[in-house]
C-alpha cells in the first residue's frame, strides 16, 4: 500500500496500462507537453512519446470519433475531454456510435474505449466548468459510467475501464484531484465495474451516493454518530450499470434511505436508485425515500455565495440525514 493522491492514482493507472499494453494510448487537448490542464498526464509524453500521448486539435467530436475508429480497429484509446462540460459536441459520437457499435453489428464490431472527463463543482468553475453530466449518459444502454471516490478506486476502476471491451465513461471529480488521498494497493490493482462499496456500516439510516458526495456524507455520518444515529453508507462507484443488489441490501438494512448527488435532482441517477428501491424493497421501508441533490437550475454560478448555495456540503447532508432519522 502507498498513500496516493486521487490525481496520481489516475496517472498511475494510465502509465501502468500503457507499459503493459502497446495498444493503449491517450488522446486529447493539451495532454502532451502540458500534461493536461489538471496535470493528469504530466510526464507521460516523456516516457511514451507524442504518438501515444497525442495532443489533438481542439475538436471534441473528433477526439471521440477518432478514438472510436481506433478502438474499432483494435486499439485501446483513452480519450480525454478537458472538462465534462465540453463533452457536448461529442455526444453524437458517444451515443450514436460508441454505445451502439457492438449492438448494431450483431457483435461483429466493438468499441473498447475509455473517455475520461473531469466533472464537478465547488472549484469556482462557474456554469461550464462545474457540471455533473452522468445523467445525460445514464439513460443510454451500451455505455458504462464509473465515478470513483477514492484514490484506490480511481486507479482500480480506470484499469478495469481500459481493459473493458466496451465503451466506459470515466468521470473524475476535479475537486478531488488533490483533496483526496488514500492507500492504493501496490502493483496490479483492479476494481470491478458495476460493484458498489459499503463505506460505513450502520443500522439507523442508509445514505446512497457517489463521487465527492461520499466524502461529505462520511463527514456528516461521523457527526450524526455523536448524536446517536448510525449510518450505512453505500458508494455506488459505478453508476451504469447500477449495483442493484447492493442498493436493495443497503435499503433493506435500515429501512430509511437518503440518496445524495451533486448533479441536479430531476431525472438524475438518484431517481433510478429510488425506483429500484421502490420496485424491490418498498415494504422494507420505514420512511419515504429522500433525495438531496443539486437544485434544478442549468448549472452553478461563478458568484461564490451562489456556488455555495448550489453545492452540497457535510452540513446540508447532515441536516437531511437528521430529518430522515427522526421520521
Amino acid at each position: 500500500m502507498t498513500v496516493k493522491l486521487y490525481i496520481d492514482a489516475i496517472r498511475d493507472a494510465i502509465q501502468e496500462e500503457m507499459r503493459r499494453d502497446a495498444s493503449v494510448f491517450v488522446l486529447g487537448e493539451d495532454v502532451g507537453v502540458r500534461g493536461g490542464v489538471f496535470r493528469v498526464t504530466q510526464g507521460l509524453i516523456e516516457e511514451f512519446g507524442e504518438a501515444r500521448i497525442m495532443d489533438t486539435p481542439l475538436a471534441e467530436s473528433a477526439i471521440a470519433g477518432v478514438a472510436i475508429g481506433a478502438a474499432a480497429y483494435g486499439m485501446k484509446p483513452i480519450a480525454e475531454i478537458q472538462f465534462a462540460d465540453f463533452i457536448m459536441p461529442a455526444v453524437n459520437q458517444i451515443i450514436s456510435e460508441a454505445a451502439k457499435m457492438r449492438y448494431r453489428s450483431n457483435n461483429d464490431w466493438h468499441c473498447p474505449l475509455v473517455i475520461r472527463a473531469p466533472y464537478g463543482g465547488g472549484v469556482h468553475g462557474a456554469l461550464y466548468h462545474s457540471q455533473s453530466l452522468e445523467a445525460l449518459f445514464y439513460h443510454v444502454p451500451g455505455l458504462k459510467i464509473v465515478m470513483p471516490t477514492t484514490a484506490a478506486d480511481a486507479k482500480g476502476l480506470l484499469i478495469s475501464a481500459i481493459r473493458d471491451p466496451d465503451p466506459v465513461l470515466y468521470f473524475e471529480h476535479k475537486g478531488m484531484y488533490r483533496l483526496i488521498k488514500d492507500d492504493v494497493p501496490d502493483g496490479e490493482h483492479t476494481v470491478p465495474i458495476g460493484k458498489a462499496a459499503v463505506r460505513r456500516q450502520g443500522v439507523d439510516i442508509t445514505v446512497i451516493t457517489y463521487g465527492l458526495m461520499v466524502h461529505h456524507a462520511l463527514e456528516a455520518a461521523q457527526e450524526l454518530e455523536s448524536e446517536g444515529v448510525s449510518t450505512e453508507l453505500l458508494d455506488l462507484r459505478t453508476v451504469a450499470p447500477l449495483d442493484r443488489d447492493a442498493i436493495v441490501a443497503a435499503a433493506r438494512k435500515t429501512g430509511k434511505v437518503l440518496i445524495v448527488h451533486e448533479d441536479n435532482k430531476t431525472g438524475g441517477v438518484g431517481a433510478e436508485v429510488s425506483a429500484i428501491i421502490a420496485e424491490e424493497a418498498l415494504f422494507d421501508l420505514d420512511a419515504p425515500i429522500a433525495r438531496l441533490c443539486g437544485p434544478d437550475i442549468p448549472a452553478m454560478p461563478f458568484s461564490p455565495p451562489m456556488e455555495r448555495f448550489y453545492m452540497l456540503d457535510p452540513d446540508k447532508i447532515a441536516t437531511a440525514m437528521r430529518r430522515l432519522a427522526a421520521f
Partner: peptide, 17 residues
C-alpha cells in the same frame, strides 16, 4: 458523417501499429 472521424481513427491506429 459520423463514420468520417472513425476512418481517421483507423488510419491513426494502423500507423501506431
Amino acid at each position: 458523417s459520423t463514420q468520417i472521424p472513425h476512418a481517421v481513427g483507423v488510419a491513426l491506429a494502423a500507423r501506431l501499429r
